[in-house]
Amino acid sequence: MSKSIEAIDLDVYYGSFLAVEGVNVRIEPRTVTAFIGPSGCGKTTFLRTMNRMHEVLPNATVKGQLLLDAEDIYASGVDPVRVRSKVGMVFQRPNPFPTMSIRDNVLAGFKLNGIRMGRAQAEEITERSLKGANLWNEVKDRLDKPGSGLSGGQQQRLCIARTIAVQPEVILMDEPCSALDPISTLAVEDLIGDLKEHFTIVIVTHNMQQASRVSDKTAFFNIAGTGKPGKLIEFDYTDKIFSNPNEQSTEDYITGRFG
């Protein structure tokens, strides 16, 4: 299931504004990659190009290639909806559908795409997905209760269950723990370690300790100043980035000298 991701000379525009310039990076299957860097440097913008979510904004365009294995997801005729079924997204704040039950939240991706299934299949997918998100034992006796009634950490894991239910190949996470308490954060971090056995995971985080704990490789993005494009400065194994980076700006950011 898991796929590699490769950006080749990727530029991201909002109208005529060049937001991210010249990204070249290859992310291996079944790994966790952390994107770090100061606010406004293009981390989330680049993350959203990986499942064409940035196109939701008016006049957003991409130049270059972004390969999911060997397929350029920006090639002519590629359906963005199909891309998003392969590349799931978990957002900064938990966003379960408030009027839906826990069960219906898990199955929402199928319903939104008009996929019908029998009761037995729906129950199997619900249980498998909630187990995959380490949430099953906590909610198995209240699947018909609203998802919005769960704690913040449980809601985020419910959103992860909703993402993995449709069996994507890549999971993108945009600061998934920023709104969570330390205990819930640890639960999600532990879950990320489990999920990488089956999925390629890319996470944006401002938490340096989190990046060092959960990721195999780390990409440092930076920006030269207001109005300038964000750029990928350095990409390497996480241990190397945090102990002996090649670029002085990487070390300065990690040690808190700027950003």
Rank of each mutant, 00 (worst) to 15 (best):
S16I: 15
Q209D: 11
F235G: 04
N222G: 15
K231L: 11
E138K: 11
Q92R: 09
A120G: 05
N24C: 13
C177R: 02
K131S: 12
G256N: 13
A70H: 07
Q210H: 08
I160A: 04
I223N: 10
H206C: 12
L67Q: 02
I164C: 04
I223C: 10
L191P: 02
T49G: 06
K228W: 03
V56S: 14
D144K: 14
R93I: 12
K111N: 07
I160R: 01
I192M: 11
E169C: 12
D236Q: 13
R142A: 14
D72L: 09
V87N: 00
V202Q: 00
D181A: 07
N207I: 05
V202C: 00
T200F: 01
G88Y: 00
A122W: 01
D9P: 14
S148D: 08
S2P: 10
Q209W: 00
L47K: 04
P245E: 13
K3I: 05
R257E: 13
S4R: 05
T163S: 06
Q167A: 15
T185E: 07
I223F: 03
S148H: 06
G225T: 14
D69L: 08
P29W: 01
D216C: 10
A108K: 04
R84V: 11
A108I: 15
F235E: 04
E138A: 13
A211D: 13
I102C: 06
A108L: 15
V25W: 08
T33C: 11
E55Q: 15
G114F: 09
P176L: 02
G153A: 07
Q156I: 08
G109I: 13
T185D: 06
I241F: 04
A165G: 08
V204F: 02
N207H: 12
R157V: 14
C159F: 03
A133N: 02
C41V: 08
A7N: 09
P58H: 06
R82N: 12
L107C: 12
K43Q: 08
I201W: 00
N95S: 14
I8C: 12
F110D: 05
C41L: 09
I164E: 01
R103D: 10
R157A: 07
E127G: 13
D181S: 09
R30F: 03
T218P: 14
V23W: 01
G259F: 07
E189C: 12
G64Y: 06
T250G: 09
